[in-house]
Write a protein that binds this DNA or RNA. Sequence first.
DNA 1: CCGCTTACTTGTCATTTGATAACTAAAAGG
DNA 2: CCTTTTAGTTATCAAATGACAAGTAAGCGG
Lengths: 150, 150
Amino acid sequence: MLVTEVNQIVDNQLFQKFVRFITAVHENSKEMTKGIQLESVTPVQYRILEYIYVSEPVTISQISECIDMSMPNMSRELKKLTEKQLCEKITDVHDRRKQYISLSEKGRGMMDQAFREIEVRFMGLMGSLTEEERAEVERALEVLQSKVFR
Amino acid sequence: MLVTEVNQIVDNQLFQKFVRFITAVHENSKEMTKGIQLESVTPVQYRILEYIYVSEPVTISQISECIDMSMPNMSRELKKLTEKQLCEKITDVHDRRKQYISLSEKGRGMMDQAFREIEVRFMGLMGSLTEEERAEVERALEVLQSKVFR
DNA sequence: CCGCTTACTTGTCATTTGATAACTAAAAGG
DNA sequence: CCTTTTAGTTATCAAATGACAAGTAAGCGG
C-alpha cells in the first residue's frame, strides 16, 4: 500500500468525522435556539439581528453579503425590523449614501435575553464536566477555530 | 473575589468563545456548501436529501421530526422529490401504513457529488496543515463531539 | 459640470414554506 | 367486530422569501 493511499484513507476518515461534527453542531445549535423566537420575528430576521448584534455597526451591503440576501430584500427586511423598533439606521457623516445599522435599546434587550437563554443551556451542558474537561473543551474550540473555521 | 465569581468569569469567556465558534462553523459550512445546489432543489429539499442520505431508510415521520416540519408539509416535499426521481418510497412489509424513504440512484449520485465537492474544499483547508496539526484537529473534533455536541 | 459608480429604496411578482382542516387506510386493543 | 390510534395524504390559505426592474441620491474622476 502506498503512502498516498494511506493518507487518502486517513483523510477520508477525518472528513467523515468532520461531516458528522458539522451535522451535530447544526442540530445542537438549532436545539439550543429552539423556542427563542420572540416578538413576531421571522427566522431570517432573527439571523439578521444576531449578525448585527455581534458586528454592529454594519452597513446594509455588509449584512446583505453575510446573510446572503439581495440588497432589495435586505432593505425590505431591515425596514420591517426598523418599523418594529428593533434596529436603527444612522447615515454616515462622511458618505451620506451609507447607512449604518445598529440595534435599538429594545433590539439589544431582546438579543441579550436570547443569548442569556442560550448561555443557560450551554452552562447546563458544561456543568456536568470537570474542570479539566472544560479546559479541554476550551482548547478544542481554539484549535478548530484557528485551523479549520477561518 | 469569591471562587464562584471567578468561575462565572471563566465560564462567561468560555461561552463567548462558544458563540464565536458556532457563528464561525455556520458561516464556514454555508461557504462550503455554497453553489452545491443542483437540479432545481430548494434549500429545504436539499436538507431533506442530506438527512435521508445519512440515515436511510427512514420513515416520513422520522424525517418530519428531525427536519422539524409538519407531516403534511413533509409529505408534500417528499412527493415533489419523488416526482423529481430523487428518492423512493417503499411500503413496510409488516406495517403497511409505514413508508420507508430512500434515495434513488439519481438522488444518491447527486448527494455523492455534493459531498465530494464539500470534501474537496475540506481537503483544501487540511492540505496546508502539518501531520501533527491534522491530528490535533481530529482530537479536537472528538472532544467537542463527545462533550458538547451530543 | 457630466457621466459613471456606489449604496440603497420601492414596487411587483413567483416560489417556497408554514399552518390547519379534513381525509384514507392500516394496525392495535379490547 | 368495533373503536381508537397511528401513518400518511390531499387541499387550501397565508406568510416568508427570492428575483428582478426601475428608481433616487450621493460620491468620484476627469
